[in-house]
Design a protein around this nucleic acid. Sequence first.
RNA 1: UCCUCGGUGGCUCAGUUGGUUAGAGCGGGUGACUGUUAAUCACUAGGUCGUAGGUUCGAGUCCUACCCGAGGAGCCA
Length: 482
Amino acid sequence: MRNLSLCKSEFSKKINGVKMTTQTIKQLYRNTDSFADKEVKVNGWIRTIRGSKAFGFIELSDGSFFKNIQIVYENNLNNFEEIKKLPISSSLEIEGVLVVTPNAKQPFEIKATNVKIVGVSNSDFPLQKKRHTFEYLRTIAHLRPRTNTYSAVFRMRSVMAYAIHRFFQEKDFVYVHTPIVTGSDCEGAGEMFRVTTLDPAKANVDENGDINYKEDFFGRETNLTVSGQLSVENFCMAYNKVYTFGPTFRAENSNTARHASEFWMIEPEIAFADLSDDMDLTEEMMKYLLQYALDELPEEMEFFNKFIDKGLLERINNVINSDFARITYTEAVEILEKSGEKFEFPTVWGSDLQTEHERFLTEKHFKKPVFVTDYPKDIKAFYMKQNDDGKTVAAMDLLVPGVGEIVGGSQREEIQDKLEARIKEMDLDIKDYWWYLDTRKYGTVPHAGFGLGFERLIMYVTGMSNIRDVIPFPRTPKNAEF
RNA sequence: UCCUCGGUGGCUCAGUUGGUUAGAGCGGGUGACUGUUAAUCACUAGGUCGUAGGUUCGAGUCCUACCCGAGGAGCCA
């Protein structure tokens, strides 16, 4: 277990002329012994409250920890009657004595000596002391981080973001900020959102009736990025090991539990490396991230395992301790043909694997993450390394149970002539790629990389089954209210 | 975008072959209660049934269109 040291950002305030340090609930849980029977001060929001004639209980959350803290308030407080009537989600500053309660449901509680009401909530606060559906909570996305599940999910999101940087930085990767606004359509990974300052109500057209992008802000057509890969490959030729981690936008009309219009992607790129190195990196990264989640947020993981996905901990431990399977696309097709399973779509060499095929491979056949490599070249992108067989490319997809494709990557075609031939073959305009092709022109090296869908990682780690529930304010078709 | 299912008080749901004043639990309000943990008990307010149109003596209940949501598919991360 990693050392969970005290948060160093303690801050002090003068309350009633007496200087007192505010503790986070996390600190109180992690170092209960050193606070026992001592004066402490906490602040936060009421999760539940109940009162009787002479005393009452408050469960307070300050966001620092998955668990809440129980406050006991009694009628010796001058504002006892006022406290008793507070609606859920009111905000408080509380001073009191921490009392260890070994025989109760909670390990300790605070006997309040002073309860300062900071902000009174309203009785129409929509979150109740009962289970809500995720569908309903999506309609109040601005309030849902105040629930157990979303509090845990978004804390995990934060911790995983940090873990990603930590993993790559410890390996001397350089973090590259690739542009969000990109200059052309040459990324070729999907439908794009336009970026423009042209007034759609005016006819900004030239003599041919085409939109005149020369008059647009950047003097050319621009879009939101669908991938940082082409940019990061250039930096890879300078730094050897690089990664991007940032938002990505796809204007696809996808209505599934695992697609969003705005999502975050991690894209490492390594030089002097082939597909096998790429998979090694992927596997090491995945195991590191899962272990990090277990070490840093054990309470949240326990909660996910209990209430979101019963087999979660077992599955994750299994993944950490086993080697990922590695098969070629051709082998995958053979496995599927021999499986005896009835698939809606037949498995034919040359066509892409269907979701049902991927699920069978990772969930039923291997029962663990599996890399599928060397896909037919015609179903993959132009930049992928062409294999000697003339039919396949050095691509890989990592499939995991429950989520499906979580990583897609490849070795890149580093030979300029071959890459250019492929661009022409696929009817792309070679002029758009002049700066990308320069990577091959000036000291080319074999290199490889992949894209990890950050939200899919969070889904995998938490067991949440809908991508809309792992993004604070999700953007999907017909949904951008918050 | 396609297929399937659904849309009833703040939330979660029930609502019989279309038939008279649409029900429950939770939540809200009021009161009671010396230890609660989704506390408990009593009383109380609150909906015209996604939207628009149609069939019918009569529609939450049947039909059509549209909107929204969920699951699956395609696209992928």
